[in-house]
Design a protein around this nucleic acid. Structure first.
Length: 272
DNA sequence: ACGCCCTCCTGTTGGC
DNA sequence: TGCCAACAGGAGGGCG
């Protein structure tokens, strides 16, 4: 579900409520997430102040006043919302991070692919973060980088866009959308991209992520921001979920195909 | 190192 | 209406 724009939207919604707040209690109702929630986590974070609400790839990072951090990953169906702490719990509410404001950050995740992790000290050494590629919205990710890292790679460019060793934050929706905007077929071998195409694709990735953030992300079903509101980028999608419907640019019916057990959408006319 | 495939989990949808 | 299979936004891990 949530890709970079949705996680970033959640981060922005959370930040004003969480920053400088002290953690009164971490209440874990269901520790069986993607990674089991460590038993000692509530004890470690109780009483700490949240100093930073950040993001790395699709992880939300809560930086604590003791130099350690909590990481929250939303998985496919997760939401992290701000609620009054006494709000009645619903099905699939898995933990509450209760703050000294009387609010709680409440995590709901039907599929339980999300996670709540603790990282002591340097985030860059955390096992799940240490090998991640650059952020797409930083200067490190540009056409030259993309061209260089795709050399020799026989895998389809669409699959490579979703590989967090190449670039982070791009999932199934925005991979299709970026390739459409760059006018590149998703099935193309990554190594076949020209320098110009790599440059177009890098720009398209950045553009589509930026625009999606502006729209508050894409809500297909479950996604809600920190305040409970959906994202509005769905209505701006060019190909994703539009199989058989006319391309918004040229009216050719959009095609779907399966790559690595994931759906890909593209326009056979616009994407040469 | 690389590329492919499977897995975790629940809910929804579509076909019969 | 019921049943069952297919599919869904992630991504680690195992295999050849």
């Amino acid at each position: 579900m949530p890709e970079l724009p949705e996680v970033e939207t959640t981060r922005r919604g959370l930040a004003p409520h969480a920053r400088r707040r002290r953690i009164v209690e971490l209440a874990v109702y269901e520790p069986r997430l993607r990674w089991p929630v460590a038993r000692e986590l509530p004890r470690k974070v109780a009483g700490r102040r949240i100093e930073r609400v950040g993001r790395r790839a699709k992880y939300l990072v809560l930086g604590l006043d003791d130099g350690n951090s909590m990481l929250v990953h939303l998985g496919m169906s997760g939401n992290l919302r701000v609620v009054p702490a006494d709000t009645a719990r619903l099905k699939h509410d898995h933990f509450d991070l209760k703050l000294d404001s009387g609010k709680a950050l409440r995590f709901n995740d039907p599929r339980r692919f999300g996670s709540l992790l603790y990282a002591d000290g340097d985030l860059r050494r955390h096992p799940l973060l240490k090998d991640l590629a650059p952020e797409p919205l930083t200067a490190a990710f540009d056409g030259e980088y993309l061209w260089r890292t795709t050399r020799g790679r026989r895998v389809a460019i669409k699959a490579l866009l979703m590989n967090s060793h190449l670039v982070v934050g791009v999932g199934n929706i925005y991979a299709s959308e970026a390739l459409f905007r760059a006018r590149i077929r998703p099935q193309r071998q990554a190594r076949s991209l020209s320098r110009a195409e790599a440059a177009r694709l890098a720009r398209a990735v950045r553009a589509v992520l930026r625009m999606a953030i502006k729209a508050g992300g894409t809500t297909l079903r479950d996604y809600r921001g920190a305040e409970g509101d959906p994202g509005y980028f769905r209505q701006r999608l060019y190909v994703y979920e539009r199989k058989g419907r006319p391309c918004r640019r040229c009216r050719t019916p959009v095609r779907a195909l399966t790559q690595g057990q994931r759906s890909t959408y593209y326009c056979p006319t616009c994407q040469g």
